[in-house]
């Protein structure tokens, strides 16, 4: 392995540094993520007539993990590309690849694991102590209830977009990223509208209205020769949005890091 591109020892040091540097978040995270199960427990306990059951707790966790994983690049690495505030990280003696991988690991792996561990741990603790009021263990259910591929790729897409724009923009990044997202939505909606109207004008309107296709049954890369053109277009779009765009964003992030000028 080229010494200057990747060195396990140096990579390990970088991870340790990363974990140490977000020390102030540890306490905050602990309190917040452990706090939610506690809150639900108290709601169940009080005779308000509301019961927060296992299913709701899992849904809440899903929402929590999803939203935080998506914005994790902003939360953890906001100043990484700032010419003044992020200087230490830029000049740290590690390769860009190593720095990039640590950032991705933190957003893709450490963040969801930490949230699930703390939340699930507190949840199980309460379930053990007070099975009458607080039923079931999230940790057990989480294996059966995991997200499907479509949800994961959507989260990945959004998160990598934020990862990329976090590195690309320096000033007013949240506003600019928000602007990009809004623009993307406008473009997507317009594209859908145009495509739909194109097809509508071609075939009879009844055929179009009766169009009924269940995409959840269809694998991502499966395209049949006798598929309706709209199905083909939609499949291609799915491949594009769920595979190509995230990969492009991930590659782009690396190259932005490599060539950034300060």
């Amino acid at each position: 392995m080229n010494n200057n591109t990747f060195q396990p020892d140096r990579f390990h040091r970088l991870i340790v540094r990363n974990l140490k540097s977000i020390r102030k978040y540890w306490v905050q995270s602990l309190l917040i993520f452990a706090g939610f199960p506690l809150l639900f427990f108290l709601i169940n306990l009080s005779n308000m007539g509301i019961e927060i059951n296992l299913h709701s707790r899992i849904s809440f966790l899903n929402g929590l993990v999803t939203s935080l994983v998506i914005v994790s690049p902003f939360m953890l690495f906001f100043n990484y590309n700032h010419p003044k505030k992020g200087l230490t990280e830029v000049m740290l003696a590690a390769s860009v690849l190593e720095k990039y991988l640590v950032m991705q690991l933190a957003c893709l792996l450490f963040t969801p694991l930490a949230i699930i561990a703390i939340y699930g741990g507190m949840d199980s603790l309460l379930a053990l102590l007070f099975p009458g009021i607080y039923s079931g263990h999230i940790i057990q259910q989480i294996m059966h209830n995991s997200l499907n591929l479509h949800q994961i790729t959507t989260i990945l897409l959004l998160q990598q977009a934020i990862f990329f724009f976090n590195l690309l923009f320096v000033r007013r990044k949240v506003v600019k990223t928000g602007g990009v997202f809004i623009l993307a939505m406008i473009v997507t909606t317009a594209a859908i509208g145009i495509t739909a109207s194109l097809f509508e004008s071609g075939s009879s309107s009844t055929e179009f209205n009766n169009f009924n296709f269940d995409f959840s049954e269809r694998g991502l890369f499966t395209i049949y020769a006798d598929d309706h053109p709209i199905v083909i277009i939609i499949q291609i779009t799915r491949i594009f949005m769920q595979v190509i765009v995230p990969l492009a964003l991930m590659t782009g992030s690396y190259f932005v890091m490599k060539n950034k000028r300060y």
Binding site: N3, N4, R10, M91, L92, A93, V96
Partner: peptide, 12 residues
């Protein structure tokens, strides 16, 4: 190029 070997030898 900001190689690690370069970066470990300088301080700005």
């Amino acid at each position: 190029q900001r190689t690690p070997s370069f970066l470990s030898r300088i301080y700005y």
